[in-house]
Design a protein around this nucleic acid. Structure first.
Length: 856
DNA sequence: GCGGATCAC
DNA sequence: TATGGTGATCCGC
């Protein structure tokens, strides 16, 4: 379909007198630009919509003004310095320029409208649009002559073109056609990336290599007439959806070969083929070049669907996408894979043509005198001072003609849950390896799922302490995946792609606090924390309702699980609810206790009496140094390794509680050493663990969980660097994956009983929330479990209350799942944000980093 | 982490 | 009569 750009350019921009129609081939009929603008304005003026447009425009103008003020304050010295910095970066980019890939962007022409015209011959020569009186999604080229565009309300379109036929959309049909097209695309790149029903990126590098050696026969296509098509194909293979339409559509398959190319006929491209008499009759042979391969793709699409497509061929996605627009409709354009060709193409390219540069960015840059990519490059130093790092990096990429050379991979369908968990685990391992290389740990795990319909979902969960090992990440990712699988139950999740990401890396500052918080831990260790079961029923509603409310707002576990409940009201589901509510009472109490602990320890300013986390003996008022020596000695002593493990792994709590209350951070004391130790020895002394958080007089309970406070660590949660690691993989080979059982996972078990340990170790850890023994002996891993479990528990308690009042519809939308966190691994450009909001002071470059790693 | 702005389809 | 719905990212708070 024609891009949003076009919609904006033509409609909104006209509306706001920003720019005019750019391709109004004012023919015999149709309207000229002025007339179109006049009609639109008449229909618009005075409306609420218009009022809002003006308001938005004012905001943007304000941003521009702020930006210009800042620009005026920039000294030439600052600019010189910036120039050096930017040029250094530009040089690095230049060095990493990769021209070895052949990326193709395929874009179906006026897709929805074309499908409707194809299936209803009465529409063929009329101006039509798909949509409603309120909104049009696309229009045919005939209608465009009247200024009728996508994203325009139908009632205005009708004023522009009274004879316009508005067809209601039929997405099922478009999906079916889209599937046919994708089947063809897969022949050239099985891992092609669909952007929508009518757009896709292909990396045909590999195909082209193979193609060089293909005999002509493999590149020869039979031009199908109506008869041959029906004879050639089994009936079932003919497009099911449009079959009946075809039967009433004599124009679809003429007896003569379809008029493929009024201009730019692929037949003409290859002279040797023209000499072949067969070609002239009913076959066509395509060459081995990229251009020929793409012509072949478009030819096959047209043969199969009778719809035309446009294409762009370039060394990266950014360029390919711009190219596909160049000879639209039904044309293609290639940028040859050499630097000069790229730069020549870029030179006069208006930045607005580039994906990711929208109306607002265009206007802001225009205020700086930037319209083309050349100007964008010339102003690079200034831009680095005026825009965020993310933004100016993007600008620099564009002005150098750089873009993504790899595509996020899609894969064969994977619908078995076991496979999905296995793949997830595999990805977690890959991710963990990379994190280890970089020495990074993070708090937010995100999974990305793309289903067979190419719909992408990302689901994230943030834990209170940093994680980095494959096991820790998988413990969280698994839970996220399980929620999605459960949500579709009893239908399987049919996945094409999965990705796992870790983000939320603590800042240096935060790391320091985390280390220092050992003192907080020791203080907190002096406070009582009894087992959930023994918790007195003293209630202080405010104290624990606050974090609970937050959980409700944010959790998607919540929404997802409730969807399930609404969707399937069988016995199994009732059991689920019951089991879940049982768990909740524990989590309530744990939470409550955590808050109490927070208060007491925060207020305590007493002289410090250290308790050794290893031998659990009070050390009196000794110096910190002396105390550390004692701990060292204890650690070095025999049979103490388990104790230290406990210590290093700290506690777990709901991320929500943590964020709201700054309850605690995790601490790391000899984390690495400890981790290595318990990798060797999986036994855990649960009694020791309990003693760690109990004070004398309280019976040891393995269910205990402590919450610690650390004044230093407060207010450190915000502003985490957004550097992240990311891995995606096909759902293809999961054979090498470790079995889930090996991980102590209960993924395949029913949802109310998560984390059932398969093998009970000598003295297993018991989750204080779900009350289930945990197979793991890794305390960090255990804490991750408790984090996740705690969150669920809270949610379920709330859900119990809410279920009665909420209509099922309100829980249907994943949209309402709230913002746990959504971070997707997209290859397309994100929207850009400059640093200018209405009246805020401009800060220097914000050191944000994002690193997405795609495997294989 | 949330909400608003931006962008894309 | 009437100007979408959804999902994603970035950024300021």
């Amino acid at each position: 379909m024609d891009s949003t750009k076009e919609k904006n350019d033509s409609y909104k921009d006209d509306l706001l007198h920003r720019m005019g129609l750019n391709d109004n081939k004012a023919g015999m009929e149709g309207l000229d630009k002025e007339k179109i603008n006049k009609i639109i304005m008449e229909a618009t003026k005075g409306s609420r919509f218009y009022g809002n447009e003006l308001k938005k425009e004012k905001q943007v103008n304000q941003r521009i003004e702020t930006m210009m003020q800042h620009k005026a304050q920039i000294t030439s010295q600052q600019l010189r310095k910036a120039q050096l910095q930017v040029d250094r970066f530009a040089m690095e980019l230049e060095q990493s320029r990769d021209l070895n890939n052949t990326i193709v962007h395929i874009d179906m022409d006026a897709f929805y409208a074309a499908v409707e015209m194809r299936d209803n011959p009465e529409l063929k020569d009329k101006p039509i649009a798909v949509g409603s009186m309120r909104m049009l999604t696309t229009s045919n080229y005939h209608a465009r002559r009247f200024g009728v565009r996508a994203a325009m309300p139908g009632f205005i379109a009708k004023r522009l073109c009274p004879q316009l036929t508005i067809v209601p959309p039929n997405f099922d049909k478009y999906r079916a056609v889209s599937r046919e097209v994708k089947e063809i695309l897969a022949d050239y790149d099985p891992n092609f990336m669909a952007l929508s029903l009518d757009e896709a990126y292909l990396n045909i590098t590999k195909h082209l290599q193979e193609r060089q050696n293909w005999p002509e026969d493999k590149r020869k296509y039979f031009i199908k007439t109506r008869n041959s098509l029906e004879n050639d194909k089994p009936r079932e293979e003919v497009n099911k959806v449009s079959e009946h339409e075809r039967s009433v559509s004599p124009l679809l398959f003429d007896d003569s070969p379809p008029d493929l190319h009024p201009q730019g006929n692929p037949f003409q491209a290859n002279s040797e083929e023209q000499n072949n008499p067969q070609v002239l009759q009913n076959t066509i042979v395509f060459g081995t070049s990229a251009e020929e391969a793409v012509k072949e793709i478009r030819f096959r699409i047209e043969q199969k669907t009778t719809l035309t497509a446009s294409a762009g061929i370039a060394p990266n996605t950014m360029l390919a996408k711009v190219c596909s627009d160049k000879n639209k409709p039904n044309g293609q354009y290639q940028i040859l894979p050499n630097r000069q060709a790229v730069m020549d193409f870029i030179k006069d390219l208006p930045i607005r043509k580039v994906s990711g540069i929208g109306q607002v960015t265009e206007k802001m840059l225009k205020a700086l005198g930037i319209i083309t990519c050349t100007e964008l490059y010339q102003q690079r130093a200034l831009l680095s001072l005026l825009f965020s790092e993310t933004s100016w990096h993007h600008f620099l990429h564009i002005s150098l003609g750089l873009g993504s050379t790899h595509l996020a991979r899609t894969f064969n369908e994977m619908s078995r849950a076991e496979e999905q968990y296995s793949l997830c685990q595999e990805l977690c391992s890959e991710l963990a390896q990379d994190l280890q290389k970089e020495g990074l740990k993070g708090r937010t795990v995100t999974i990305k799922l793309k289903n067979v319909n190419f719909e992408v979902k990302t689901r994230a969960f943030t834990v209170s302490s940093v994680v980095s090992t494959a096991e820790e990440i998988f413990a969280i990712a698994k839970e996220l995946l399980r929620t999605e699988i459960d949500a579709d139950f009893p239908h399987p999740l049919r996945l094409r792609l999965m990705g796992v990401r870790l983000s939320g890396f603590p800042s240096e500052e935060e790391k320091k606090h985390q280390q220092r918080s050992i003192i907080g831990f020791l203080q907190a260790g002096n406070h009582t924390l009894s087992a959930p079961g023994d918790m007195p029923e003293k209630t202080d509603k405010d104290q624990f309702l606050k974090p609970l409310e937050m959980s409700q707002k944010k959790s998607f576990f919540d929404t997802k699980r409730s969807e399930r409940k609404w969707g399937q009201q069988d016995k199994f589901k009732c059991d689920t609810v019951d089991a879940q509510s049982l768990q909740t009472s524990h989590s309530f109490q744990v939470l409550k206790k955590m808050n109490e602990n927070l208060e007491t320890s925060e207020n305590s300013n007493k002289p410090q009496i250290f308790t050794c986390p290893i031998c659990f003996r009070e050390q009196g008022s000794i110096s910190l140094e002396a105390f550390n020596k004692h701990v060292d000695a204890c650690l070095d002593g025999p049979s103490t390794s388990e104790n230290s493990k406990m210590f290093s792994c700290s506690h777990a709590a709901s991320a929500e509680v943590n964020m709201k209350e700054n309850v605690h951070h995790s601490f790391s004391l000899r984390e690495k050493q400890d981790y290595e130790t318990h990798q060797k020895n999986s036994e855990i002394n649960s009694v020791d663990y309990v003693e760690l958080v109990e004070t004398k007089g309280n019976p040891p309970k393995a269910e205990s969980i402590g919450a610690l406070s650390d004044k230093h660590s407060q207010e450190e949660c915000a502003g985490l660097p957004s550097k992240s690691f990311n891995t995606e993989q096909h759902c293809q080979n999961s054979s090498s994956a470790v079995s889930l059982e090996d991980m102590g996972s209960s993924s395949q078990q029913e949802c109310p009983q998560p984390y059932l340990p398969e093998v009970v170790t000598a003295q297993p850890l018991v989750c204080p929330v779900c009350n289930l023994e945990q197979k793991t002996s890794d305390l960090t891993l255990f804490n991750v479990h408790v984090d996740v479990c705690l969150n669920k528990g809270i949610i379920q308690e709330l859900r119990k209350d809410n279920l009665a009042n909420q209509p099922p519809e309100s829980t249907k939308s994943t949209h309402t799942s709230g913002k746990v966190q959504k971070t997707a691994t997209k290859t397309k450009r994100p929207g850009l944000m400059t640093k200018y909001s209405s009246s805020k002071k401009i800060k220097p470059n914000n050191p944000r980093h994002t690193l997405d790693i795609f495997f294989k």
